[in-house]
Design a protein around this nucleic acid. Structure first.
Lengths: 361, 361
DNA sequence: TCAGATATGCAGAAGACTGACGTAACCCTG
DNA sequence: CAGGGTTACGTCAGTCTTCTGCATATCTGA
């Protein structure tokens, strides 16, 4: 129980008003009063306070219609911005959204897979700075920074295990990225953040318990319980088991071999038996790892993401076939709808959560 | 966002006061004011309202000491009672607690493992009624009823799958048991409720994410995420996988064979190699199922409960030995501290949760 | 220009909390 | 047994937040 405060009611009403304000376009006081169940008078004073905090502004009344024109208000989504970063093996990506989650800038750069940590960080900082500059965001409007990375992340934002990236283990990624901009920094596992993004605005919008499979150059997994990532004791609940025990580390290389993934899937689309067989073997590997997660969590939905998810049914169909005998009642399985920006989007969601707390929204 | 109300502050302060009231023995107004951060005046009016609702009463002031004797108040834990039931294959058990969770009555009866559902229900109702009568609880003080049962329970309190109990599948256990007393009824899976009980007042008091293994005449499992049972899409998150796929259904019979479990563990304690080997084989089976749960959830703690957990290290040691190679960093594993009343205790916790809501506590 | 419709703005009242001040009850000391 | 010290009680005024009702302002259409 937190400290009791007389202004608690005001806090609650501010939240309710903001909710209603953000839902519609440019509501009037009367509309807001109806939506929140508050009196018009209360809504008015709340809006005055929100305007003072820079979170709401009055817009010109609409024309036409009988009666006195109503004052209209709009949520200032530009009051703060969130910077989301995605550190991959082959590229880094930065993405900026406003408070509504609307993407206002994005920037990416290639990085060698064997680049040392310092080089990767330099590239990351460069895309982040470029993204801010090109979007024209002043530093004071940046609320928080968050990054997604392969590997295990502890609760303080430190990367404890990251075999995929040279020199990455032990890095205080939250501190470093936040420090660049003098803002709070946060870090999450890439699969977990992609899952968060899918829940926020992707394929898992209506599911609370979700198993997410990241199928790309690297194979990973994440879990959402009640819409929130489940991290576990060491911060890698879903990952820790699947990674080494079931051979997930080798599976992507085994699929592609000498060719690229695009070539394999293109060949399979043409009916090439060798490619089809390779994909089936890959799907079998994935299914074996996923079944442990699915049987334990009994999720509402399984989302397949990562670069390979572009293949769609080419990969989903064999995956479903291999999962069915392993699960008693197989859950729905669907492909990601967010593309390769899922991790960065999930990172901005992580940053936005902190910004909301910070603004007492 | 619920309806906005000026009296929201009062609600919050009632909760805060109750919390402080329940923590200590018989606090004074001044002590409560200090504990809650409220003014003495506010605490006084809150207590008057609580007394009116039957949730607090004034007790005689303590003697001695300088100054005017302070009025002292006490939480009325006897305002409502919770009835918890445990339906087992060989026996039924009823347990009554007051609002503080103090057990004020318990009753049990043996039931044949192959008894039809009607007979089992009659026995269950008999122990429940006897428990209430012997504890002297009037019906109006009974707040809610909850029951634990083997098998899968859906969100409405209906048993959907229960292979262990004849005729049990499809039973609306929540409706039936609640109907006996004209009170709301709730039902949970036995392993899940035992896990809840361990988190409430047993071995898992300080752990949020817990894997619970029910090792008795039947082998089952439950999961706690953040201290709350994780049910999953169909209501049997942890169970569904372990039950059939890994041969957990046969494991108990395989261990005991012709003898009883007590005989096996007694022989093992004497160093009997056949008994030790049987236990080791059993532990191996358990570890294989548990590892999937542990690797997925990455729990802070694994609790071994059920009848066989009495064996203690005799079973824990081989279990740890088999789990270690399966987990990268094995979590702590400990035995239940609640004995065979864990399921019924978890059921009363489930009932108490509802009673608290009902009383707006 | 007037009537109807819609929104605003002000005043009064109610619920809840706080802080201050005077009063009551008890113990200890002389 | 009387007085002082100590602790707690109880009342009162003041503040914050909200809601309701009524008068006022502004626009459209006839």
């Amino acid at each position: 129980m937190q400290k009791t405060d007389v202004t608690l009611v005001r806090q609650v009403n501010i939240r309710a008003t903001l909710r209603a304000l953000r839902a519609g376009g440019a509501p009037t006081l009367t509309e807001l009063a109806r939506a929140t169940g508050l009196s018009r008078q209360t809504v008015e004073t709340v809006l005055a306070e929100l305007a003072g905090r820079g979170l709401a502004r009055e817009v010109p009344p609409s024309e036409g219609g009988p009666g006195r024109p109503a004052r209209r208000f709009r949520f200032r989504a530009d009051a703060r911005y969130a910077l989301g970063l995605d550190v991959g093996a082959h590229r880094v990506l930065a993405l900026i959204t406003d408070l509504d989650g609307t993407v206002v800038g994005t920037e990416r750069a290639a990085v060698a897979a064997d680049a040392p940590a310092a080089e990767r960080l330099t590239a990351l900082r460069a895309v982040a700075e470029a993204c801010l500059t090109r979007a024209g965001i002043v530093r004071t409007r940046l609320g928080a920074v968050a990054a997604g990375t392969p590997g295990v992340v502890d609760r303080s934002g430190r990367v404890t295990v990251a075999g995929a990236l040279p020199g990455w283990s032990g890095l205080d990624l939250a501190g470093v990225t936040g420090g660049w901009f003098g803002r709070p920094g946060f870090v999450g596992n890439d699969a977990n953040l992609a899952a968060v993004a899918e829940h926020w605005r992707g394929a898992a919008r209506h599911a609370g318990d979700v198993v997410y499979i990241l199928a790309g150059h690297r194979l990973g997994s994440g879990i959402l319980i009640g819409g929130r990532p489940h991290l576990g004791r060491t911060g890698a609940a879903a990952e820790i088991g699947t990674l080494r025990l079931l051979g997930w580390e080798d599976a992507p290389a085994e699929l592609t071999g000498e060719a690229t993934a695009d070539q394999i899937f293109a060949a399979a689309a043409q009916g090439d038996p060798t490619a089809l067989k390779a994909i089936d073997r890959y799907a079998h590997r994935v299914a074996q790892g996923a079944s442990a997660l699915i049987l334990t969590i009994d999720p509402e939905l399984v989302v397949l993401g990562g670069g390979f998810s572009h293949a769609g049914d080419l990969l989903l169909t064999p995956l479903r076939a291999h999962l069915t005998p392993l699960c008693l009642t197989p859950p729905e399985i669907t492909a990601s709808t967010l593309g390769d920006e899922a991790v960065a989007l999930g990172a901005t969601r992580l940053a936005l959560d902190h910004i909301h707390q910070d603004l007492h929204i």
